[in-house]
């Protein structure tokens, strides 16, 4: 059992990380904290891909003398794209939060909902 947990330690960390992100996103009324949760959640996925690509004893995928096993470079490349997407999402989210603060004067979700329902 211990061996099973330790052998998959990366994946356990990823699951914990993603759940922390998801929980923060759902439980916090503050919009910035929601965005933080979202970012943590996305980071979990990046770690998942990178962990999958790792080959035990493999080096960076560069052809060189004396090395025969390499890690899979493809997931790492995919994650570069995903990081860019994540940064764009976060930037857009923060831009929206700024506009919400200007329009409503608050970024607490419960207060926003109250103001929306009043109209």
């Amino acid at each position: 059992m211990i061996e099973y947990i330790l052998g998959h330690i990366n994946y356990w960390i990823i699951i914990v990380l993603m759940m922390i992100g998801l929980y923060t996103m759902m439980s916090r009324p503050n919009l910035i904290k929601k965005m933080v949760g979202l970012s943590v959640f996305q980071t979990g996925v990046i770690l998942l891909y990178i962990s999958m690509a790792k080959v035990t004893g493999g080096t960076a995928p560069i052809v060189a003398e004396g090395f025969t096993t390499y890690s899979n470079p493809l997931p790492q490349v995919l994650m570069l794209t995903a990081i860019v997407v994540g940064v764009a999402t976060t930037a857009l989210g923060f831009a929206l939060i700024v506009r919400i603060k200007e329009a409503y004067g608050t970024i607490e979700e419960d207060e926003l909902e109250m103001m929306d329902n009043e109209e």
Binding site: M25, L31, K34, L38, T89, L92, G93, L96, I97, R99, I100, A103, Y104, L112, D116, E119
Partner: peptide, 11 residues
């Protein structure tokens, strides 16, 4: 309200 709607959609 478009702003909050957009933010919800984003999340």
């Amino acid at each position: 309200k478009a702003l909050t709607a957009s933010f919800h959609y984003l999340v």
